[in-house]
């Protein structure tokens, strides 16, 4: 929604396109800088993996934010959709030799299908009931996978080709962010936001509430599936214990810390949480205690997260870019 507010300042076609172009240009610069860091060995393999994980987690948190933040439907089952994408894609690439993109597409599609199937009945529930139901569904997905011998059961699926590379995750991340940004700034995204703000008023404005809840849930699940596909191909082995509700909580922490209803927030949240996890890898308890206290104090003093809802205009998400955009306009 912050982006939505911000659009006002760029709501002519040329200004919107200029803004998009600048976002893309910055992404290219960032990409080139990181890629250069890799090739000049400035970034070691530990941080290389973590940069890839940050990108994947941005995909996960942005897609969860679409459901939880923009549409206001509190889901705790995101890891389940991630698992579906991961397993579908590794079957394709490992057992059938398909390329990664095929795995991502089919993994995302299967997760989306499941999201739609689950969303239709479940999204009638409200608030904390929806949260606990989606948590349960995510766990059911995981337990079902754990009982399929074909994918290795509890022991995990081994022999996955290492197909996830930095360019793949980076490009996918940018596509995801643009997709969600454009979605929330369209009439469809506004319908989702209206559902979050006031369901009765949204319906009175001609918005089919169920349709948009399910739409957001399905799109969110699709990107979670794609994120899962990328995640799986970072490792030689995946197993169902990577997709427990703790993982869903992890994405929730990113979204809540960064800010509900803010893509910038999701990026920041994913970055902070992943980097912190990496930095504190040797002290896992300590890391979780920090998250715990951060969540609690955030709810006391800043329940909307670092970025979030209205504050976003002031704490402009693309502050730098806004500045660049002004410069661009002066030329």
């Amino acid at each position: 929604m912050g982006e939505l507010l911000q659009m006002k300042k760029y709501n002519s076609k040329s200004a919107m396109q200029k803004f998009d172009f600048l976002l893309l240009a910055c992404s290219v610069v960032l990409f080139a800088a990181i890629q250069a860091g890799f090739s000049m060995d400035l970034i070691g393999s530990f941080w290389k993996l973590n940069i890839i994980l940050i990108c994947i987690n941005i995909i996960m948190s942005a897609s969860l934010n679409l459901i939880n933040g923009y549409t206001g439907q509190f889901s705790l089952g995101h890891a389940g959709f991630m698992a579906v994408g991961a397993y579908v894609s590794v079957i394709l690439t490992t057992n059938f030799g398909a390329p990664l993109i095929a795995g991502m597409v089919l993994g995302g599609a299967c997760a989306a299908f499941l999201g739609c199937l689950i969303g239709l009945p479940t999204l009638r529930l409200n608030g904390d009931y929806l949260a606990i139901a989606t948590l349960g569904l995510g766990e059911i997905i995981r337990i079902v996978i754990m009982n399929i011998e074909y994918v290795g059961g509890a022991a995990g699926f081994t022999g996955i080709p290492h197909l996830t590379t930095f360019p793949w995750v980076f490009v996918t991340m940018i596509v995801t962010l643009f997709f969600i940004k454009n979605f929330v700034n369209s009439t469809h995204g506004r319908a989702c936001i209206a559902v979050r703000e006031n369901e009765i008023a949204a319906a009175a404005m001609g918005i089919n509430i169920t349709r948009y809840k399910v739409m957001a849930f399905t799109i969110g699940a699709a990107f979670a599936g794609i994120g899962g596909a990328l995640f799986a191909h970072c490792f030689y082995i995946i197993n169902p214990s990577s997709f427990t509700f703790m993982q869903s909580f992890n994405f929730l922490i990113m979204v809540v810390m960064g800010g509900l209803g803010s893509l910038t927030g999701s990026i920041a949240g994913a970055f902070v949480v992943t980097a912190l996890s990496a930095a504190l890898a040797s002290w896992p308890e300590f890391r979780m205690i920090i998250y715990a206290l951060a969540l609690i104090f955030l709810m006391f003093y800043r329940p909307q997260g670092l970025f979030g809802y209205v504050e976003l205009t002031a704490y402009a998400p693309f502050n730098k870019l806004k500045f660049l955009n002004k410069e661009g306009g002066q030329k």
């Binding site: 506004r190 209206a194 006031n198 009765i200």
Partner: peptide, 23 residues
């Protein structure tokens, strides 16, 4: 309209109206 006002409280005035064009 509603007796107890039901606006999209956190959104801008303009967005409130734009949403209603949805259909």
């Amino acid at each position: 309209t509603f007796q107890n006002i039901r606006l999209f409280a956190e959104l801008s005035v303009l967005d409130n109206v734009k949403i209603a064009f949805h259909f």
